[in-house]
Each structure stands twice: as structure tokens, then as C-alpha cells.
Design a protein around this nucleic acid. Structure first.
Lengths: 216, 216
DNA sequence: CTCAAAATGTTGCAAATGCAACAACCATTT
DNA sequence: AAATGGTTGTTGCATTTGCAACATTTTGAG
């Protein structure tokens, strides 16, 4: 297993990473696309580290309304203690978007100093620090999107965020149906709005390929 | 200054806290209600710790649209590195809701180990950890609220969250105008909806006092 | 290949919401 | 007391949005 690309272990040698695994009681699992990676009511204080592939955190409320909470790519971490409140007791799951590989460790083992006082434990804490900061950033981005009043503004806001890393032409990192859940809009209404946006010359859209046309 | 109630310093003796202040280059300031506590484009890598009073983080976009991003009470921390993306380059400020007292420290001084290697520095990092986790929780709560489709659902979601800590009868922690910004709805439309909710027997509302009536 | 399930695209209609404009109220300052 | 600025409450109207229902296309499994 190559951990060199995983941010959580940055600055920690591969050999030492393996050594740390026993402290953490790390467990490795692989999942097929569509499988449930993490089921919140059950998964206690475990932290998941996405080693390979991608997944989406999905909340389903009592009315069956679905909303996308977070999107995980390689290197991202997730877990109940890390990220969210489940106020309403809704069902919250992480679903594999593609085949993926995940490492699970106990949160409590990370935050408390282990008896052996691994030298690299504190570095790991620092890394974790940075990852959580990154996560708050993405949550905050989501809030920026959701706080727009109209579906059009929400979409434009999201597209501009994507464009900042990918340029004015990019591919949606999720299905249109998921996108609707992500911006918290009705799918059909959103599709209608996407058409209008194209008609108004704001974007060009072809399947999942999108091109921002106007600078703004 | 009494730090015993500030989560960031939990488990660190008062005398040692004072000792640490020099490492951090802590600066203390007081603000009147309505004053600007923190202005993001300018305030670099500083972390604010709310020692006394309360404040609100407000984003204003290019159209003058206002949205409340976070609400800070005693013990909460805030800062650019901690929480948010400013994608659009909008104006983001922290405004004192009441008279308040804030301590500012440099983020970089917290994350990097200081030369003196204070014994308690690592405890501070652990505490900071917990605070950020708490922050992600509140961001995630906000997302839970914003991802509801209707204004009524947003409000009920928020009220239930408040009720969990305060019981079925509580006082709004912000003005109605701010509440509208928080749930990202038009103020007048929200007021209208609040009346309807009362008419429908869901809540009783009197100024800022709210009572949840139906269990659900 | 074939079938079933899921995703996508489209439309009409009713309801919710934003918007604008206004009046009433409150607190603070002069 | 008067003036000022901010918050609150209300209403009519145009627009947006959600919702439901349906046809079409794509995907995946056997």
C-alpha cells in the first residue's frame, strides 16, 4: 500500500506509517461502486480515509428527500465526529461513486497520545488538522452555494468554483441527479433552468461537459 | 483575565496560559455592539477567540445580498484559515452583536511547535482540534437547514436544533432580519411564513420568543 | 443480446417565494 | 422634543420553483 499520496500521512515515512497502523487498529476495505461505505448510526467513532476512488455522503430525511452532504476524493477523510450533526436522526450514508478503497481508524486513537508515544503521532495530528480545515472549507463552499436564492445563482456559483480549478471548460464530478441534490433543487426544475441558462448564453452544456461562456 | 471557561485553554493552568501568550503574540481588543471585529481581506492568518459577548460572520456579495455565515458565542474561534472559502471575493466581516472582547493570535504560531516547546502547546493543539470539529458541526447544521426546500422546513429545522439545547421554548439568538439571512430567505416572505406557521398551530411566536407546539 | 432499473429530458399547473413599496415601531442622538 | 436610522410587519404582484406525470435514453446485470 502506497501512502505517499495521502495527505494524512504527509511527512511520515512509509515504514513508520505501517508501524503506526497497529496503534490505530487500522482496517482496510474495498467497495464496489454503489456500495455503502459508511452508515452513520452504526459506524461510531471511526474515521474513514479514502485511499482510492470516490464517494458521496448522502442524507435522506424522513420524507425520503435526498441531499448530498459531501463529496470525497482520494485523500479525503470522513466520520461522524469530524463533520456533521444528525439533528433529525436522518439516515446518513457514504456511498461509493466508483470502486474504492478505504482505511478505517479509531478517532479516539488519533486524538489521544498513544502509550508508545510515537514520534510521528504529533505530525499526524497536525496533518489531520489541515484536513479538517480543508473540510470546513468545502462545507463553507457548499453554504456559499446554498445561500444563493435562485437555482440559477446556485448553479453559477458552483460552476465558478469548479472553473477556478479546472478552467472554463470542465466535466461535472457527479450525475445531474446528484447535482440537483447538491444544490438542493428539484431535478426537473434544475434541468429546465440549465436549458434556460444555455439559451441565455451563460453556459454551453453537453451531457456532463460544461463550458462557462461569459466572464463575470 | 479568566480563561478557565474558554475551551481553547481547557486543561491548561491560568498561569501557564499567560506564559503561552507571549509565544502567540496574543492581542486583546474590545468592541462595541455593531462594530467590525474582523475584516477578512485584511486580517490575514489571525485567529480570533471570542472571550466575551457574541458576534456574527456576515458575507455580502456583489449584489449587496447579505448572508449570515456563522454565529459566534463565548469560547468560539474564527479566522480565515479556519473556516471558509471566499470564492467570489465577497466582503466577509465579523460584526459584534453585543459588546464583546476578543483575543487574536497568529494561526501559524499555533500549528507550528514553538522553539521553547511549551509543554502545553500540544494540549492547545488538541483543544483547537476539538473546536474546529465543533465548528464543522455547526457548518454542517447550517447545511442541513439550507438544504431544506421550503422556508417553513428551514425554519422548523432550525427551531428544532435550538430546542434540542434550550427546550421547546426559547429566544432567538439573533434579530428576525438576521434570521432571514441565516436561513437565506427573503425577510418579508419569511415573516409571512412565520405567521402562517403560527396560524397552523406549529409554533407560538412573540417578538423573539418562540415556542414549539407540535412534537414531530 | 435482452431485460430491468436508473438517469435524463420535457411539460402543465399550483404553490411558494422574491421583490417592491409602505407604514409602524423602536432606540439613539442632537 | 425632534430627527434619524434601523428593525419589524403587511400586502399585491410577477416569477420561480416544486411537483407529478410521462417519454426517452443510458447503464448494468444476467
Amino acid at each position: 500500500m502506497d501512502f505517499s499520496k495521502i495527505d494524512l500521512f504527509e511527512g511520515i515515512k512509509g515504514s513508520e506509517v505501517n508501524c503506526m497502523m497497529s496503534c490505530f487498529g487500522a482496517v482496510f476495505r474495498t467497495f464496489r461502486a454503489g456500495a455503502t461505505v459508511y452508515d452513520y448510526p452504526e459506524s461510531g467513532d471511526e474515521v474513514g480515509v479514502m485511499l482510492k476512488g470516490g464517494a458521496t455522503m448522502i442524507r435522506t430525511d424522513e420524507n425520503g428527500e435526498v441531499s448530498v452532504m459531501e463529496i470525497f476524493a482520494e485523500g479525503d477523510i470522513f466520520g461522524e465526529v469530524l463533520a456533521f450533526s444528525n439533528a433529525a436522526g436522518d439516515s446518513v450514508k457514504v456511498i461509493a461513486e466508483s470502486d474504492c478503497e478505504v482505511m478505517f481508524i479509531k478517532y479516539s486513537q488519533i486524538t489521544k497520545r498513544c502509550e508508545k508515544a510515537c514520534e510521528h503521532h504529533s505530525r499526524l495530528v497536525q496533518n489531520m488538522f489541515g484536513l479538517i480545515a480543508k473540510k470546513t472549507l468545502s462545507l463553507s463552499q457548499r453554504i456559499e452555494i446554498l445561500s444563493k436564492r435562485s437555482t440559477r445563482d446556485k448553479l453559477m456559483c458552483y460552476f465558478r468554483i469548479l472553473a477556478r480549478t479546472c478552467g472554463d471548460e470542465f466535466e461535472l464530478p457527479m450525475s445531474v441527479t446528484r447535482l440537483a441534490a447538491y444544490v438542493s433543487a428539484d431535478r426537473s426544475a434544475m434541468t429546465r433552468e440549465l436549458s434556460r441558462m444555455q439559451a441565455d448564453g451563460l453556459i454551453e452544456i453537453n451531457k456532463k461537459k460544461i463550458r462557462l461562456k461569459k466572464v463575470c
